[in-house]
Design a protein around this nucleic acid. Structure first.
Lengths: 110, 110
DNA sequence: AATATCTATCGTAATATTGCAATATAAAAA
DNA sequence: TTTTTATATTGCAATATTACGATAGATATT
């Protein structure tokens, strides 16, 4: 085996997993944090900032894009990448909800 | 190759990636959601709830534990698993912060 | 047109993950 | 003590991920 059994879980669960998975690599965390830091969206310098080769960075960007965490527009010869707020918002809402439910429960037997 | 280059990123970035990665599988999302749903912490029935074999579930539980997302106490013959609030809280804070920073910026060129 | 620049894709090697059967471990019940 | 019950570990096969060199495509610049 080796393939995830996505069929057996709900769409929501799979969606959450996909987004979280995209965040599950330090390089992609670094990319998001860099995109947040820089003022402009013209982000042709991501490769220079990361300690990884250009094809590797390109691959990570693709995954972030597929997960709905960043958007990419063609801007002349360069590509303009920026964070997709919707994706971050979904993650925020999910964990905020989890946290709130936990506080309500207070079943701390552990 | 194939191994993540953790050395080149900050501890915080690696920590975030580790926690997010633990959430990056629908079975583990389902486990967290189940632990949240049930009232008690005595969770010997996780295996019966999931569409996966016992060793597979055990492995997923181990990963969630290593990532600091659940806690496990020995409770006689069964093991008492429950959510580790600290972990969820960290994720919540991180994404809440990201979201807040995004709202402040408003540099929506995309 | 030729060149330079930026990004994507392909191909491939190294490593990690997923999943399960078989087995081990440990405590409760008989 | 033997058996049952619950969970962990081991070993292995299938698949996915990570990383990069080589190369392709597309737009600026000369």
């Amino acid at each position: 085996m080796g393939a995830t059994k996505t069929d057996h879980f709900t769409t929501q669960q799979n969606n959450m997993a996909t987004m979280a998975k995209a965040f599950g690599h330090p390089a992609r965390v670094a990319i998001i944090e860099y995109l947040l830091k820089v003022d402009t969206c013209i982000c042709g310098d991501i490769v220079n900032v990361l300690p990884l080769a250009q094809p590797t960075v390109s691959q990570h960007l693709k995954e972030l894009k597929n997960a709905g965490l960043i958007k990419g527009n063609i801007e002349g010869t360069a590509i303009c990448y920026c964070i997709d707020k919707k994706g971050i918002e979904k993650l925020k809402k999910y964990f905020t909800s989890l946290s709130a439910q936990l506080t309500q429960k207070e079943n701390n037997c552990c």
